[in-house]
């Protein structure tokens, strides 16, 4: 699997027009000649493709992603300390936590709201409640995110000044107490997180709804009902538990989106996350960074999927028993 991902990333790099080494985004014959040389060394471009790939994989296996081609030459993955003790942070090291924070928050919100909406519309199947919920989540999916973002920024940031417009911190936040810094950060995150959550509601809540509908028609629910259990208990304890279970795998599947973050939301809200980093690197043909992000992103996806599988096994009694045996 990892091999496959690295192959695809490698292929993308070779998609770039002409020789990869002709890629320096400036009118600068000298700098580009030098970076060409560096690229040759880095990717062994004078050797046959298969050997290039092998050597690249070997370096990646040692977590050596090299330095950015941009003039700051920051390390791609992790910080580096020079001889006099100055630390230069890695690009992914800086942007990944921000992206993860936003998207984990988003996922929590998406799931809690979706489970609620999905259950509600399953219980009230084919009533106006069901239909309004469906319509609402679809509108959330269908509205172009950056447009809504700008509207909300204007409404909550300019007209009413309730929330900050962009960025992650207010001016002078260093002077705030830890708690106030946290509140400040939360305020900055409200808009970006809700915009990115809104588009994810549709998929999950429909999934919950359809899952609930399937389960509500199953025998054990009928049994529970016939035993005279309260409807609410039937729905929330017996049915919901079973309907949520498959969601664990969905979390695993949604990891790529999570790592990728959103290029657009990050540009609009001036958040220096992975999406923005990737976009900038693509525009600057910063190949070490592009490759680093694709590889790390895919790698984290694998871990995510693995965790989801384990979580599923842990939560599902049938599988758990199977494991014990």
């Amino acid at each position: 699997m990892l091999i496959g991902i690295s192959l695809v990333s490698f292929f993308i790099m070779h998609l770039a027009p002409g020789d990869v080494t002709s890629s320096e985004a400036s009118f600068n014959p000298k700098a580009s000649e030098e970076s060409r040389q560096k690229l040759r060394e880095l990717y062994n471009l004078d050797k046959p493709v298969i050997i290039q790939y092998g050597l690249w994989v070997k370096r990646i296996a040692q977590l050596d992603f090299g330095n950015s081609f941009a003039s700051h030459q920051k390390p791609v993955l992790w910080e580096r300390t020079d001889k006099s003790g100055n630390v230069t942070k890695g690009l992914i090291q800086e942007s990944l936590p921000i992206t993860l924070m936003i998207n984990l928050l988003g996922i929590c919100i998406i799931f809690s709201i979706s489970i609620f909406l999905g259950t509600l519309s399953a219980v009230r199947q084919n009533t106006w409640v069901d239909r309004s919920i469906t319509l609402f989540v679809f509108i959330g999916f269908a509205i172009p995110g950056f447009w809504l973002a700008l509207l909300l920024m204007y409404w909550t940031g300019v007209s009413n000044q309730w929330l900050p417009i962009s960025g992650l911190h207010s001016l002078g936040y260093q002077n705030l107490s830890n708690f106030d810094q946290f509140i400040d950060l939360l305020k900055h995150l409200i808009l970006p997180v809700s915009i990115s959550s809104l588009s994810g509601l549709a998929g999950i809540s429909l999934y919950v709804r359809n899952g609930m509908l399937d389960i509500l028609h199953q025998d054990f629910i009928t049994t529970a009902r016939s035993k005279g259990l309260k409807e609410s208990k039937v729905v929330f304890i017996h049915a919901l538990k079973n309907a949520i279970l498959p969601l664990i795998t969905i979390v695993g599947l949604s990891i790529p989106g999570l790592i990728g973050g959103s290029v657009i939301a990050e540009s609009i809200f001036a958040i220096p996350g992975m999406g923005k980093l990737f976009y900038d690197s693509v525009l600057m043909r910063d190949f070490p960074v592009i490759m680093g992000i694709l590889t790390i992103g895919s790698f984290l996806t694998l871990i995510g999927n693995l965790l989801a599988d384990i979580g599923y096994a842990w939560a599902d009694p049938r599988v758990r028993k199977g494991l014990v045996k």
């Binding site: 699997m1 990333s9 993308i12 998609l15 790529p256 990737f278 976009y279 693509v282 694709l294 992103g297």
Partner: peptide, 20 residues
């Protein structure tokens, strides 16, 4: 399929469109 699913799609689209 699994490989394609684990690479963030929008990244893929971005990179390819910018390059092409």
């Amino acid at each position: 399929v699994d490989i394609m699913l684990s690479i963030p799609t929008f990244f893929l689209i971005l990179a390819v469109i910018a390059f092409l």
